[in-house]
Amino acid sequence: MSASPTSPKTEFPWWLAVAVILALAAALFIATSNLYAQVFATVAKGIGITIFVTVVAFALASAIGLGVALMGLSGSRLMRQIARFYVEIIRGVPILVLLFWIAFAGAPAFVAAWNALTAPLQSAGFFGELLVRDVSLLWRAIMALTIGYSAFISEVFRAGIQAVEKGQIEAAKALGLSRSQRFRLIVFPQAIRTILPPLGNDFVAMVKDSSLVSVLGVADITQMGKIYAAGSFRFFETYSIVAYIYLILTVGLSLALRALEKRLRRQHEE
């Protein structure tokens, strides 16, 4: 039975058409307005930092999250309990609080521990003492986002891996494949189709949450907007541009991820 014209599969994305028209109209207005063009030029300087923070933090969070997920699925009770402890504790702390803790408590503690462990090498003249100011606020912010999101991403990986049929894993065991071979050749290629949609949602969410790094003075989009607004008192214009840029980034990423999901689905059906 063919799908009806109003079914979700064939329904025309009117919301997207309206969004594109509004985005183009806003771009035209910004290009023809001296004030908005100036605001955009200032705020846009933070796009590179926002993308850098998001990509690096997400890559690190995905690697840690996968490791925690595998620990949670291991045969060792100790590993499972450590993974559960990590996930539940980290998920219970707001990202902003974690950001402050890493920046102003975790970084000094790390520096003190590093200096204590490497004191003999420092005395021998191999390198100097590490200072707290040597750990940039940018990397403190990246580590906070990495730790915060790794707990959520680990649950995404765990659910995707557990969604693979156990019969296929048993068949792989019967073929003599090792644990690592089963994961690399059988489990992960199938799990990624389940993992990708929520993982993409976490990536888009991290783009938005990266704005929190502005509280540390990191020169991202939000921080550049705060600086401009504080100096010009053009709050409406500035934060309208900030919202516009974030919308372009997040909606564009969402559409790209949706297209990738459809492509993977078609490949699986073929």
Rank of each mutant, 00 (worst) to 15 (best):
V20H: 06
V39S: 01
K262P: 03
V56N: 02
A151M: 08
I161D: 08
A113K: 10
G72N: 12
F127H: 04
G200S: 06
A57K: 02
Y246S: 07
S136F: 01
L70G: 09
V43I: 12
V56S: 05
L145C: 11
A19P: 04
L121H: 06
I47F: 13
I161G: 07
I51H: 07
A37V: 00
F58N: 10
L253E: 02
L28S: 10
F236R: 01
A27N: 04
M143I: 15
F40D: 01
Q122T: 05
G72E: 01
A144I: 07
V43Q: 06
G128Y: 09
S7R: 13
G225L: 08
L96F: 12
A63H: 01
S254P: 03
A63F: 05
E270W: 08
E155F: 09
A205M: 12
A116M: 11
R184E: 04
I153V: 11
L249N: 04
V53W: 12
T50K: 13
G75T: 02
R184I: 05
A109C: 01
P8T: 07
T42P: 00
L199D: 09
P197V: 04
A27L: 15
Y86E: 04
A256I: 12
A59W: 00
Q181K: 12
S254K: 05
Y149W: 00
F233H: 06
G125L: 02
R234L: 15
A61K: 07
I248P: 03
F58R: 08
R258S: 14
S180Y: 12
L16G: 11
Q162W: 00
I64P: 09
R184C: 03
K208I: 07
I21S: 12
A151T: 08
V55M: 05
P8L: 05
I227H: 09
S211G: 11
P94I: 08
L196V: 14
G72M: 04
F203L: 13
E129C: 00
G217M: 13
R258D: 12
M143L: 15
L130N: 01
G252A: 10
A69D: 08
Y228M: 05
I102L: 06
I142L: 03
L22A: 15
V132C: 03
A105N: 09
F188Y: 14
E270P: 00
V55N: 01
I221H: 06
G167N: 04
W101F: 14
R263Q: 13
P94F: 06
G48F: 13
I169Q: 13
L212W: 09
L60E: 02
A17G: 15
F236Q: 02
E155M: 07
R133P: 00
A229C: 07
T118S: 13
T238K: 10
